[in-house]
Design a binder for these strands. Sequence first.
DNA 1: AAAGATTGTCAATCTCCTTGCCTAGTTTGT
DNA 2: ACAAACTAGGCAAGGAGATTGACAATCTTT
Lengths: 161, 161
Amino acid sequence: MSFDSASVRAQREQMLLRLLFRATHTMNAEVTRRVRARGWTAFKPAFTTLLSRLDTDGTTISTLAARIGTSRQAVSQLARAIEEAGLIERMPHPTDGRSVVVRHTDAGRRILLDALEVMSAIEAEYARRAGETEVAELKGLLAHLLGEIDPVGAFRADAVD
Amino acid sequence: MSFDSASVRAQREQMLLRLLFRATHTMNAEVTRRVRARGWTAFKPAFTTLLSRLDTDGTTISTLAARIGTSRQAVSQLARAIEEAGLIERMPHPTDGRSVVVRHTDAGRRILLDALEVMSAIEAEYARRAGETEVAELKGLLAHLLGEIDPVGAFRADAVD
DNA sequence: AAAGATTGTCAATCTCCTTGCCTAGTTTGT
DNA sequence: ACAAACTAGGCAAGGAGATTGACAATCTTT
């Protein structure tokens, strides 16, 4: 394998990982910008990760960690930040004295719905610019690939809490 | 829009942004793991961003910043880290006294080729598991979408350095 | 020459995450 | 019943990667 900088660069530009990086970064920046523009100035990109995984009756830190796929400490810290933004609240677990249940506040529910609306709007815009079929197909292919390479990361309706 | 936690969660799982996040994260983790396994223990995920954008005869910090799409400061810091890992070297610009030219060392060229091999191997593996056509199509659709939403991020053969 | 831009860097700060350790509870084994 | 083992959560420290503001050195324009 020879080394020619231009061809190496061109090659990398077409790598799947590079394409994924660019798409993720571009879309995430846009979502954050628009959610903030809706008046949620305290919103941070990481918030939706947790907010969207809370059950109506609340969820424990450990369960969240398992769902999100990070450590309990990370969730605990993230939860503190979101709590300080007034979007969730901590409560003692009804039966397990060690556990803490995290639950949406009203504002937490509102911002989540707003974020979902923003994401839908952006997707719709992408579909308008790049083609309805293309974007739908892209989502299908991504979901298909993820089913192969990251089955655990998927939402499981039967998750035990 | 009503609020039902389970349906909201399910809805978000199918959002394009969420799919992109999962795919990016999964693939990036795998690339890093394998490159490290090839003996590049000092390798960090962020390195390839810069390494893959260096020209054979070197590139200035400002040019890199424009190419990568971040600030000069970020590039400067990243360059220091990569320099300390022995993969690039700084040199004074031949004509412009303000500029610094960043260039691959031999090790820098080798690790980049290794990383590209790793990425190709992973893509091939994905193609085997999820289908050749599917992965090729996924890449095509991503590139197509990016052409619409992030035209600047693309590689430009006519870039002036 | 003087005014203005541009290049790279320093320093401080921020976000998100990790690792190591610790206490308070709960479950298990005998 | 009771000690051992495990689990839930949080504290502290710190790292990776980026941002922002300020700045000296150097070019460019007028």
